[in-house]
Amino acid sequence: MKSSVITFPGSNCDRDMDVALKKFGFNNKMVWHDDNELPKSDLVVLPGGFSYGDYLRCGSMASKSKIMQSVINFAKSGGLVMGICNGFQILVETGLVPGVLLRNKYLEFICKNVFVKLDNKENTYFKNLNKDVLEFHIAHNEGNYFCTKDQLKEIKDNNQIAIYYCNSEGKIEDQYNPNGSIKNIAGIFNKEKNVLGMMPHPERMIDQSLSGEDGSIFFKNLINNIK
């Protein structure tokens, strides 16, 4: 299975993602933002970081970089595109997934482990996962998901909410919402469910001695679903 991780100026989770993808069997290539063409890929990942120093709005400049036209075309033709953290911010700026990510409600940079509840397993990312609650890591300043009322109705109607912030038992309540996201939303699909944007970092949970294994569960399942 072939994957590509895009590196923008200021990306800093690109190599972590490369390590994670390779660990679980992807033949991964790093792709520079200034390239025109994506290599042949089964999965494209927009990694976390601070692309373009978060200037203007997080992800706004990266969303206009050269490679993104090729990524957008790939997504529109049904290709799997996953954006993590800053990658999620880039995805919303391209319009591939609806909504925006605002400053965290309490103006803090949040760096901690959180639990997320999967809402929809009828997609390549979560199909066949035998867990409903996963422990991932978040590290962001702008993860406060917001969308208009009309957009919220649309994403609910189309089952586009991918994951919610919750507690270890999967309870989705205000007190488990780290950043003020509308409805505790931590990740969103596009309508067709081939594009996934999420704030949590599965690539940081691939080693028990470092953090946890829920990222391993996610990646192992993902590559099996793509095969």
Binding site: L56, R57, S60, K64, E93, P98, G99, V100, L102, F146, C147, T148, Q151
Partner: peptide, 8 residues
């Protein structure tokens, strides 16, 4: 196209 995000 860039300076504003018309969602917000």
């Amino acid at each position: 196209k860039l300076l504003a995000n018309l969602v917000i």
